[in-house]
Write a protein that binds this DNA or RNA. Structure first.
Lengths: 324, 324
DNA sequence: CTGAAAGCGCTTACAG
DNA sequence: CTGAAAGCGCTTACAG
């Protein structure tokens, strides 16, 4: 049913070789202008679409790079990474295809359906999948558990450091009684746990009391929790991210509390809205542009058969505004 | 270099047929347990990864569905669509792969690298690309210019209706002198233009003066524009989206203006933060869940060879809060 | 129950 | 400058 290059060849009155040469602009060939036009016209008339599978099989490799995204919601950082990768790869004639991984489905099934040149993993890969891919000659970049060269998608140490950074800033402002506002999103619990770990460890190190944790719904003002914190003498709250911080801020306003006088609030991410709250939100910014460029550089290196560059050491920074 | 099924067959001392039967769990075959284990062990030992290209070529079709995303930033609506599609397709053994389209690169190149079963287009496709895909037996769902059956990615009429909805609400609140706050994001200009069109037409219809337009940076309070509007006697501002509205709100606060007394502000999208501003933001919510389900249903219908269901008619709705 | 063989559609040395 | 032919790795009728 589908039109093949043989059909085009027949219609144009030439061989399949010629069709291939014309359609791929193969260098080193010299097809007469007339023949060329015949072929192009026949292909257009028949609506010829080449078989990607046959092409890939014959050439021994595809022009595809697959990026596997984790099962949790990703933000603008990942968008930046994806855009950058798409453009960089395009310059080499490669296409980036993104797969949103669901834990319900083993990744190994995917490799039966597509054999990419490189796999970019922003999620944790089972070790044997990783091995199988590599043995099959498919390079893997940035997977969470690639521990032999220090690259990591979910960098556990980094997540803990983020929590610690919040505590250190809040402590430096003279706050001693801290609370944690966390997310209810199940897919984010791994991160939330790691960050809470970092917060607890930092509190212990600074000899601050262990902070209570509350789940906050980002869709409505967290007035009830805020009132409870006030009653308990909590002075500052470290939020899972800016979205949660917005809800805490709105809760404080509703409860009639002064921020940061009665309660200091600290976010994480530095989304645009963080600069627009009243008072403007103190938060943490991560070096996402650097991370995106690093990942793109890793893919380039792998394509060129060079060793992957070391992970950049640019740290996350506190953006001090007015809520602490 | 890569391991093939022939290598596995040799290592296991069986034929390629048997390897294929075992590895694919082909129904209707009855391989002895011993043989089966031999094959599995050999495959694991050699790190065998099947060639997706050969498989697809032989079977005449791939297990891939490609979704082409537009060149502009997408929000949570698209994420919902993608998650839903991924899960629905997984039930049929299909994988969803997402491509972020860049206008710099013609889409037709992509079809040389991958031949999906279905293409889901959330962006505008050139008409001849569309024809070529269809002639090649690849179904296309939801592309922007599929005009013969009423499906549309960028629905121009809908974009205009969104602008009109803002004007109608603002007008019903008694505001006559309107302004438009638009985005500076180049990739969004097509939408911005369409919505501004809708706003102007609605103003004309309601006999309101033509509204002036200002570009607002979502990263900082729009105090300067707000002061200018106040000086010009503007009573209400229709914002391109909630992000812009947040910047206008922050600007009004900085300028010491009362919202909605001195200036009414209306957003669009109903992001979580819209319920958390002070005062809470009046905005518009789009039936995104319905749209996601519709698109998923279209893909299912196409896979089953059935006609695509009609586009749902659920309208966008004004969410009245306190800024108007 | 297992194996030998054909063929999917393409690209590319090779021959003319 | 153009064509006939091989072969990429797989699956699946078909034969044994």
């Amino acid at each position: 049913m589908p039109v093949t290059s043989a059909d085009v060849a027949r219609a144009a009155g030439v061989s399949r070789t010629t069709v291939s040469y014309v359609l791929n602009d193969t260098p080193g060939t010299n097809i007469s202008e007339g023949t060329r036009e015949q072929v192009l016209a026949a292909a257009a008339r028949l609506g010829y679409a080449p078989s990607a599978a046959a092409r890939a099989l014959r050439r021994g490799q595809s022009d595809l790079v697959v990026c596997v995204l984790p099962d949790w919601p990703t933000g603008p950082v990942v968008d930046t990474v994806l855009d950058l990768l798409t453009d960089n790869l395009a310059e080499r004639g490669l296409f980036l295809l993104v797969h949103h991984h669901r834990s319900s489905r083993p990744l190994r099934e995917l490799w039966k359906a597509v054999t990419p040149r490189v796999v970019v993993g922003l999620t944790h890969f089972p070790a044997d999948d990783l091995r199988a891919l590599r043995q099959a000659g498919i390079e893997v970049v940035g997977a969470g558990d690639v521990d032999d060269d220090g690259h990591a998608g979910i960098d556990e140490g980094n997540q803990r450091a983020l929590g610690a950074l919040q505590v250190e800033h809040l402590g430096s402002r003279g706050h001693r009684r801290l609370a944690v506002a966390t997310t209810q999103d199940g897919r984010l619990q791994e991160f939330a746990g790691l960050r809470a770990d970092g917060i607890r460890q930092a509190c212990a190190r600074l000899e601050l009391p262990a902070p209570p944790t509350a789940v906050v719904d980002p869709a409505r003002p967290a007035a009830a929790v805020v009132r409870r914190w006030a009653a308990e003498g909590i002075e500052a709250v470290a939020c899972y991210n800016d979205e949660i911080a917005l809800a805490v801020l709105a809760g404080a306003r509703e409860a009639g509390l002064d921020v940061p006088g009665d309660l200091a609030v600290m976010g994480l991410d530095d989304v645009p809205a963080a600069a627009l709250t009243s008072p403007p939100l103190t938060t943490i910014t991560q070096p996402s542009a650097a991370q995106a460029h690093h990942l793109a550089a890793c893919v380039e290196a792998v394509l060129d058969g060079e060793p992957q560059p070391p992970w950049p050491t640019e740290p996350s920074r506190v953006v001090v505004r007015a809520t602490t």
